[in-house]
């Protein structure tokens, strides 16, 4: 992909500004739904950066996996656990934020210093550009074959583990004694919204003959 250098610089500036402000919004915004959508924007701008690095396959994988799967999964999780709760104040919150901010700033300064003082072996070999997808395929089926197969096993394990963890076990009878079990003990009432609607419906049901 050959683009004029000025265009490339403008693209990089726009993408990096989206990335930085989007990630700050993910961390700082009070509404978590906005955070989740901004996270999708951050993932998309990272995919744009990959395109600028001549990696079209990884950019496509980033869009498919991160924006298409992980972000949607996070949105579903927000939908499932979205309860308005007032967080109890904890002592020393401001001090903790300032301290962790100082630690993060120190880490950032360290990383920047490493990036600018290290003598990188530039310029490296000529990038292969558009043939990157072919080269990735060759890598995956020759010298990275074992990690590739292990990744498939890992995905299977993650899938089964997620199903087992998130499944809701409801037994109507006790496994050991065989007595019927009150399901309210196992399945707790989840949202006060549901309880409220039940309470409102109950007098109406009593009035009807």
């Amino acid at each position: 992909m050959t683009i004029a250098s000025t265009t490339q610089q403008i693209c990089f500036l726009v993408l990096s500004a989206t990335l930085v402000f989007g990630s700050l919004g993910v961390v700082l915004l009070p509404n978590i739904v906005y955070s989740a959508f901004l996270l999708g924007g951050v993932f998309l701008s990272v995919a744009g950066l990959y395109l600028m690095l001549n990696a079209s396959f990884v950019a496509a994988a980033q869009v498919l996996v991160y924006v298409g799967a992980v972000n949607v999964l996070i949105l579903f999780a927000i939908m499932l656990v979205n309860k308005q709760e007032t967080l109890a104040a904890i002592p020393g919150l401001l001090l903790r934020r300032i301290l962790s901010g100082a630690v993060c700033a120190g880490l950032f300064l360290l990383l920047v210093r490493v990036a600018f003082t290290t003598d990188w072996a530039l310029p490296g070999p000529t990038p292969i550009g558009d043939e990157a997808t072919i080269r990735i395929g060759e890598h995956l089926f020759s010298d990275y074959l074992l990690p590739f197969e292990l990744a498939s096993v890992l995905l299977l394990m993650a899938m089964i583990g997620a199903i087992v963890l998130a499944r809701r076990d409801v037994f109507s009878s006790d496994v050991i004694t065989g007595e019927p079990v009150d399901q309210g003990l196992i399945e707790k009432s989840r949202t006060p919204l549901l309880l409220d609607t039940n309470d409102q419906k109950r007098p109406m049901l009593e009035n009807t003959p």
Binding site: Q62, V65, Y66, V70, L73, A158, A162, I163, L165
Partner: peptide, 13 residues
């Protein structure tokens, strides 16, 4: 990316 997808699924579960 693969490991991150697996991590997100298990973490949300």
């Amino acid at each position: 990316i693969t490991v991150a997808a697996a991590e997100a699924a298990v973490g949300l579960a």
